[in-house]
Each structure stands twice: as C-alpha cells, then as structure tokens.
Design a protein around this nucleic acid. Sequence first.
DNA 1: GCCTGTGAATCCATTCACAGCT
DNA 2: AGCTGTGAATGGATTCACAGGC
Lengths: 217, 217
Amino acid sequence: MTKRSKIPSPTIERLALYSRPLQSFVESDTPIVSSEKLAELCGVNPAQVRKDLAYFGEFGVRGVGYDAQELLREIKRILGTDREWTICIVGMGNLGMSLVENDNFRKRGYRFVAAFDLDSRKAGRRLPCGLAIQPACNIPEQVRGLGVDLGIITTPSREAQRAAELLFKANIKGILNFSATQVRAPECCIIENVDLSVKLENLVYHLETLYKGMPMK
Amino acid sequence: MTKRSKIPSPTIERLALYSRPLQSFVESDTPIVSSEKLAELCGVNPAQVRKDLAYFGEFGVRGVGYDAQELLREIKRILGTDREWTICIVGMGNLGMSLVENDNFRKRGYRFVAAFDLDSRKAGRRLPCGLAIQPACNIPEQVRGLGVDLGIITTPSREAQRAAELLFKANIKGILNFSATQVRAPECCIIENVDLSVKLENLVYHLETLYKGMPMK
DNA sequence: GCCTGTGAATCCATTCACAGCT
DNA sequence: AGCTGTGAATGGATTCACAGGC
C-alpha cells in the first residue's frame, strides 16, 4: 500500500468522478479506456488522470490503456467503496426525506439504517423505505448499537451543532453536513460540510461577472 | 471595480461561506467582527479572510475589525446576491421536490418560477409552493418567456444531458447539476456539477485511511 | 496595543514533455 | 505507433510576517 497521507484531496474527489464513466464502460462492454477518453468525459486533463492513478500504483498498460473493469475495481478498493457503508440521518425535512429515498446512494452501496428528528412529534412516522423516524434522544444508544458508519445532517442550521453532538456521543466517525452552518468537530470525527446555497452563490457570481455591463436580455 | 478576472475560485466559495456567520452577527447585534473570529467560525486561516476581502477593496478598519453589517452588504454585492435570482428546475423526483421547498434558497433570495419533468405523466401536478409541474418540452418557450436566470437539474443521470440541452435552447446562462453525470455545456453557459455521492465517497476514503489496520469497533 | 492590508515565502496542484514499455 | 508513468516546469493558493493606521 502506497503512503496515503500526502495525497492531494482533489485527487480523491476525482477518483470518485472517474468511477462514474468507468461504470458505464463496464456496463456497455467497453473493455479498454485511455486516460484521454476518461479525462474528456470528466472534464479534466489526461495527465491529471494518469497522475491521480499513479499515486496508488500502476494500473494501465503502456501503449494500450486501462482495463475498465479492473480500474473500476481498483478505484473502489482505494476509496473504500468496495463494501457496504451504513448511514443514519438526522433531520427529516424535505431534503432528509429525499436523501433517504435517493437511488444513487443505494446503488453505490450506502444503506440508511436509522432516521432521526429533533422534533419528537415526527417520531414514529414511517418512511416509504420502511424506516421509522426516531426521536433524536435515541441517537447515542441506537447508533452505537447498530454500529452505524456515517451520519448525515439535514436539520435547520440552528439545530445542526446539536445534532452533531449527539452523533459524536454515538461515536460516529464521519458526518456529511447539509445545513448552512459549519459544524465544529472533535479530532476523532471527520466532517464534510456541503452548503447547497453556496453552490448557487458561485454560479451567480460567475454570471454577474461575465455579463457585467452587458444587459442580460 | 477591481479586476475580477483572476480571482481564485476558492475565494469566491469562501466569500459565500463568510456571509453565513456575518448574517448571524447582524441578527444578534454584534456590530464588529475580526478576521480571526470570522476565520475561526468558517474553519479557515485569518490571513485568508483578509486576503480574500482584499481582492475587492478595503472593508476593515485597522486596529478595530470589520463592521459586520457593512461587510455583509459588500459581500452580497460582490457575489451578486443583493438581488433576487429566478430559478427553474428540471426533474421533479424526491430531490427536486425538496429543493423547490427548501427554505434556505428562498431566504437567500432565490425564487423558483418553473418546474419541469421529462416524464410528461407528472405534468399538471401542483406542488405545495403553488407551482405546477410542466412537461419538459415547454422549457424553451417558458424559460425564455419568464426570463429565468438559473437552471437546476435533478433528473436521473441518463436524462441529465437532455435536460441540459433544453435549458441551453432556452438560453439559460447558469446550471447547477445534481445528477451523477458531468454535463457538457457550450461556452455561453456555466455549469456547476454537484454529485452528492462523491461527497460521501470522500468521507469514506478518509475514514478508511484513518482507521486502516485498526479494527473499527 | 490591536487588527487590517499586503509583499514575500512557502506550499500544493496541474500541466508539460518525454522516457519506457507493449 | 500508441499510451502510460513520471520528473521537471509552471502556475495557483495559502500562510507568514510585518508595515501601516486606528
């Protein structure tokens, strides 16, 4: 195993990206793929693809390319997505609901095993997927008991930190936070903050900049 | 106006980030905020905050700090979020539904003005927010007619490119794409791809790496 | 004394260009 | 001939460290 400690984090993000088209190649029985082809589909530079992969080994054949199926398997092994990961979610508003039912997650081997809400009046309600919403106070016990791998926070901003604390107590090691506040975490827990409206703001800035001065009509 | 062309894109992302705590400061009548405080709340380096702001002007007072309200106003002006932006959305599955109802977007001045689905059987259904789902074939005419600013794609992967083409035809200038395939766009349209399962993959990699060798129990 | 604004230094990531293998 | 793997070169972004103003 290569030294993993100083691998650029953009590389990790791209590995996940590469796995999408690779999956398609495998499904459409296209056995060989070049760094150029893969790069094009992912909107990156071919050298980038090769360098990213080189951090972890030599997966290609010079003069030929990469075996799609094999490369996909390797990437999954590198990322750790070659096994099932269990998830619990806190905050069963519209966004939470939609993520629980999200097919993409299921297809990629993520399984929701518990759903919570800080509003205990929602407790007991059963979701289409079969899970029943539990009150947040159940988190520490339930999540430990089930040995859940990951947590997702989809509460309103002001409740996000509280939700996170409960997950820490449950000894959760990784959290994906969709609320608009950055959650502060202890050393032992990795947090990924994803603020969807920040993405819109980016878009708006670039548009505003592009069309500065010209009427947008 | 400062030269905007060569501003690091991470800077733009962070400006949006800064605006969150600033909003709280304004609401809680905390008039002055330092780069250190702001940095801490956003999980970045204080020098970073100052440098980011310096690209656009001098907004602080030496020896004192920044006026929260004024800084927030400036950031909004810079990003272009000091006015309302209209959005249309294509793909009314669970995720699409949840975004349309999402309060965060509304609070930040984004307004959904049309909702479409490629499955014409969904057409006519009325959403809680009052919009009715329209068939995708209406996109070019409707979106042009309403002068919509932004598009959001929440279709399944295989339909994402088709949805995008319709939006291009409608002369949309910016798209936020939540599907798992990278959409290719003409020069005149900016695409931001947000693959939620990529975020999970990142998390998984870091966990896998951290606990390599040690039993996860 | 305190906190901003900023050149200089450092660190990190991407791209180039070619050697090496099939 | 073709495409990978990789050192070297380039280009960006972050952080340092201190000058400048309150």
